[in-house]
Design a protein around this nucleic acid. Structure first.
Lengths: 225, 225
DNA sequence: ATTGAAAGTGTATTTGCAACACTTTTCAAA
DNA sequence: TTTGAAAAGTGTTGCAAATACACTTTCAAT
């Protein structure tokens, strides 16, 4: 076995997670950001974060932190990067791992969010954030965009059932560019894991739009990424 | 400012880096692995790793660890992932960040490598590694392969000047599949940042093969990834 | 009955990728 | 000096995927 001294001669550090929480509403991507009413950096904007605790996996810490703010568990979350510059947190040395999370913006717990003094902010209006959180957001956005081109992660931002127009608007928001409606629908039609539910959404048009859903079983059968 | 107590109520952890060191020789990718003659897990195979020290950036720790083993600095290195499961190191809790490094296999310091009881092992012959290092290798390989399809990172595995046959063999090793010679050369011809040096390599053929080099300035001008 | 607003639908063109085999060069050996 | 071996180098065709592009349908409200 490893002698305890093998570890003891090395320093220990605080380990944190910071979460880039994406939502989608009215054709725009938003982030859930804190206007900090607590130290450090009180009064400034930041990501939701927290420290890793004893006996807690790093991934679990990220899930806990997101759940503390939104009340939601079982979100789609991915690790983005770990930031380990000595001076990145001016208070003490902290190694922080960034995760992004995708939230169906209809579902989060408004009371919790209010209690944390958190707000959904549309991407183009994101304020300057503390520490290296600006960089974290940029990295998370790039990573999430890449993943969205490879697999349909974006669906986690929509309700269970969604119209093709919603889906297209979402992808336009993620990729930041307009998409041709007919080409988009052709591509979706090829994906048998996006299936019509038979339900109709009449809230946005008189004609009504077919509602679709993501079939995870069919998807997992087809793809490995 | 942040009260010190803000940090003090949270635990600290050892932070480590583990490095997946890729080399390329005779048409095959290899990893530089340690046959551990020290605790913990003496006698088993592992990646080269080390602990992050006080006052040392995470990236710098990874660079130091690779330099300790190979004598090389200024390598192409990228962070892969941070592994934070509670029980991943059976000795004590350690959060470890994996980095991959690309080494021109002609240049490393053989004495250092011997002193560490390290060996180049061809990819298909990689033994089982300690802890979660198998997973780190799998993740690093996938990430490096992806990056290689997007930008010419592989060039870091070759000498300054290389022939197109060498480059093709390298990409076949990275992607794990044969590539058509004419299609490959067509694609390379479009990349003006891979330029002929005018030198000829006669070591492998009577006819001689044109030597090329990577022009970083032209590349940085063309691409942003 | 008309209008407005969103849903839904097909074709032609372009472009990038994949398949495919022979010629050239040079040196060394016969 | 001829011949053979071994690697370098070179174009065309076909196919599939992506793109560009505009009108019709539906239905509720007026």
């Amino acid at each position: 076995m490893a002698p305890k001294a093998y570890y003891d001669i090395h320093p220990k550090f605080h380990a944190a997670v910071d979460c880039i929480i994406f939502g989608f509403e009215e054709g725009e991507l938003s982030l859930l950001l804190l206007q900090r009413d607590f130290e450090p950096a009180k009064g400034q904007w930041s990501l939701m974060g927290g420290f890793v605790e004893d006996g807690e996996d790093l991934d679990d810490a990220a899930r806990r932190v997101v759940a503390e703010l939104t009340g939601l568990s079982d979100l789609y979350m991915r690790q983005v990067h770990t930031y380990g510059e000595v001076e990145r947190d001016p208070g003490e040395r902290v190694l922080s791992t960034a995760y992004y999370a995708l939230v169906n913006i209809k579902k989060y717990d408004r009371e919790l969010v209010r209690a944390h003094n958190a707000f959904w902010v549309r991407l183009p209006e994101i304020p300057h954030l503390i520490f290296d959180h600006d960089r974290m957001v940029a990295d998370a956005l790039r990573f999430m965009r890449y993943q969205a081109t490879v697999k349909p992660v974006g669906i986690n931002l929509l309700p269970e059932e969604f119209t093709l127009t919603q889906l297209q608007t979402l992808y336009e928001a993620i990729l930041g560019e307009p998409i041709d409606k007919r080409n988009f629908r052709k591509r979706i039609a090829q994906m048998d894991y996006i299936e019509k539910t038979g339900h109709i959404d009449k809230t946005l048009s008189r004609k009504g739009a077919a509602l679709y859903r993501f079939n995870r079983e069919k998807f997992d059968g087809n793809f490995k990424i």
